[in-house]
């Protein structure tokens, strides 16, 4: 379900979840576009040499994935602010899920506050955040 107008949103609404592509090929594509071609993002063995468990999805990519979820939910919305906390690494080649829930509405501003998470298959929250979204 997509949202066209502020009036379509209700407190507690869940955004449609999706599983982002956090496979190595796609992370390399992101890293190239973001000019972040570091081994800790693009190569498991290189990341291990840096003392990591494996390659990690860049935090900037996790944040942009959360923004993409908002756009899928409300295609004409404008993002006023997105604030993310990188609580734990999002590992490349592991499956992740992005989720959002509406936690506040401001009728005067026509904005919605959305709580955001990136979780892994174990149900662990790796990234969390909030967004303020302005709706038509």
């Amino acid at each position: 379900m997509t949202i066209a107008r502020f009036e379509d949103v209700e407190f507690g609404d869940d955004l449609p979840t999706f599983d982002p592509d956090t496979g190595m090929e796609n992370v390399r594509r992101f890293a190239k576009a973001a000019q972040m071609m570091a081994a800790r993002f693009t190569d498991h063995e290189g990341a291990k040499k840096e003392g990591l468990a494996g390659a990690m999805v860049p935090g900037v990519m996790s944040q942009a994935i959360l923004a993409a979820m908002i756009h899928r939910w409300a295609p004409d919305a404008d993002l006023v602010k997105i604030d993310t906390i990188f609580r734990a690494p999002v590992m490349v080649d592991e499956r992740h899920h992005v989720n959002g829930v509406v936690t506040d509405l401001n009728e005067d501003e026509r904005t919605a506050e959305v709580d955001l998470t990136v979780t892994n298959d174990a149900g662990e929250t790796r990234v969390l955040g909030t967004a303020t979204v302005k709706l038509p």
Partner: peptide
């Protein structure tokens, strides 16, 4: 475009340079 597509954006204004409103994703 690469940034937007890798993150799962589907809207043409972020992914299609021919879109009249083509611009960078907010983040």
């Amino acid at each position: 475009v690469g940034f937007a597509l890798a993150c799962g954006e589907t809207a043409a204004r972020y992914t299609d340079p021919a879109d009249p409103d083509f611009h960078a994703t907010p983040t």
